[in-house]
Structures are given as C-alpha cells and as structure tokens.
Simulated scan of single mutants.
Amino acid sequence: MSTADMSAGESAGGGGQVKSAVRTVELLEYFAGRPGMHSLADVQQAVGYPKSSLYMLLRTLTDLGWVETDATGTRYGIGVRALLVGTSYIDGDEVVAAARAALDRLAEDTTETIHLARLDGVNVVYLATRQSQHYLRPFTRVGRRLPAHSTALGKAILATYPDEQVRRMLPETLQSLTEHTITDRERLVEELHTVRERGYAVDREENTLGLRCFGVAIPYRTPARDAISCSVPVARLTPAHEQLIRDALFDARDRLALATRRL
C-alpha cells in the first residue's frame, strides 16, 4: 500500500502520515520532475488520485502559488514558491557555502564546467554550478535531478558505499540515458571497484552524448553524501587536459576536506 492510499484512520494515528500532506508532496514532486504544463487528465493518470480530490488540491496549491496554470486555466505546472524554497535550501546549506572558493578555483584551473551535487535516494541533485569559460550561452543544472549511476558525481558517491548496500539501493536493471549508460547493476558494482582504487569516477557520455565528466566525492562524512565534478566535451579532451582536470579535482577535494571538516 502506498503512502498516498493510507486510510484516514491510519493518518490520524500516532506516528502515521497525513494523507493530504503526502499527496501534496507527491504532487509537487511530480511537477518538479516533469517541466512544462500538464493537463488534469495527465496528472490524474500519473498520480492516481480521485479526479475531484486532485482538482481541489490543484486549485488550493494554485491559490497559494505552489502550482501555476496556463492562460486557459486547464494545464498545470510547478509554481514560483517552489523555487523560493529550493533557493532557501541552497542558500542555507553549509557545504555549498564552504565549497564556493574551491569551486571557483577549480573552474579557473580547468576552464570547464564544474558541479557540486548531493545524493538523494538513487539520484543526484545539483546544488551549485560554475560555467565553462568556453561557452557563451549560460547553462545551469542547479536543482536538476539525475540518476546517480549515469553520472560521475553519483558514481563517486556510490563508490563510498559497500557493494551490498549499492545492490540494495539500485534495481538490477538501470535506466538508460544514452547508448553508453551502464544499465546492469553488477557491471556498475564492478566499475565502483575501479573508482575506489583510482579515487575518481568517470562518466563516458553515459548521461549526455559528446560530454565526458570526472568526479570525486567530498570526504567530510562516510559514506559520502556530496561530490564535485568537471565536465568537458569529448572533442576538446586531450590526454594532457584530462590529467590537468584530475589533478585539479584532487586538489579541490583536499581543499573541501579541510573546509568541511567540522560539518
């Protein structure tokens, strides 16, 4: 039985979850994971709530600014208040604050795109970005959620967990984002052995075609929760540049280990 289907009696009991609160959170997470506007029928099909209850919940969230509608009032999407809460989380996070100088230095040393992300279940959520000096168009992944197994960030963090715990966390068959994504859990576990040995993880166009990423976990807790990465287009990646990136990542990791040692 899902939390959204708990009875009112269960919700009222001590320690139980409140059904309306669970549905609200699940609905906001649905919109957060699916950018754009969606019809009531599409939302109802996805979440499975009774249509009348769903409509009243959407109407309430719209009135409060957590959900927005299009000009017709028939399609729904995430509202601006969700952005305010997300920004508040990042602004108040001690690791993000402690990492700013190291991320700036890493971006300057590599001239490439830098990310800081946190493990959330089987995904990583991006908390900070530094743009590549080679791109003219601004781009940020802050707030985005991607499968941990397809990113250097996620693999760097997963490598700090025991194999059996990784097996419990991930399904046998993993989501494929590109033709290069590792989709077999045991193959991923084997790669995590290599990550532990060399100290960094590599995303070989497993998340985005044409892009290779290198990532290291931040060791302020064990298992790790956060990691940093450097992304570079494959067409511009030379052996010398790859070595520079690895050295810069190790230097940034050591700086962050010091900056976060009391967290």
Score class of each variant (00 low, 15 high):
residue 25 V to L: 15
residue 25 V to Y: 12
residue 53 S to C: 09
residue 121 G to R: 00
residue 205 E to V: 01
residue 107 A to S: 10
residue 86 G to I: 05
residue 118 R to Y: 04
residue 229 S to N: 05
residue 30 Y to Q: 06
residue 175 Q to P: 04
residue 9 G to E: 15
residue 88 S to H: 12
residue 6 M to W: 15
residue 76 Y to W: 11
residue 192 L to T: 06
residue 195 V to A: 12
residue 23 R to Y: 02
residue 137 R to W: 03
residue 237 L to G: 14
residue 67 V to A: 00
residue 66 W to I: 03
residue 163 D to T: 07
residue 37 M to Y: 04
residue 57 L to A: 13
residue 68 E to R: 13
residue 171 P to S: 02
residue 254 D to R: 15
residue 228 I to T: 01
residue 171 P to R: 11
residue 72 T to L: 12
residue 250 F to K: 08
residue 11 S to V: 06
residue 155 K to H: 09
residue 50 P to S: 03
residue 9 G to R: 15
residue 232 V to G: 06
residue 217 A to F: 05
residue 28 L to R: 02
residue 82 A to D: 04
residue 122 V to S: 11
residue 70 D to H: 05
residue 227 A to K: 09
residue 93 D to T: 10
residue 241 H to L: 15
residue 91 D to T: 12
residue 89 Y to M: 12
residue 72 T to Y: 12
residue 261 R to C: 11
residue 228 I to K: 00
residue 230 C to N: 05
residue 156 A to V: 04
residue 236 R to F: 14
residue 10 E to D: 13
residue 83 L to R: 15
residue 4 A to S: 15
residue 151 T to Q: 00
residue 88 S to I: 01
residue 137 R to M: 06
residue 67 V to M: 01
residue 241 H to I: 09
residue 6 M to H: 13
residue 211 L to F: 07
residue 230 C to F: 07
residue 194 T to E: 11
residue 68 E to N: 10
residue 176 S to W: 07
residue 51 K to D: 11
residue 183 T to C: 11
residue 84 L to H: 15
residue 200 Y to S: 09
residue 229 S to L: 08
residue 244 L to K: 03
residue 213 C to D: 00
residue 15 G to C: 08
residue 139 F to M: 03
residue 165 Q to V: 04
residue 108 E to M: 01
residue 130 R to E: 04
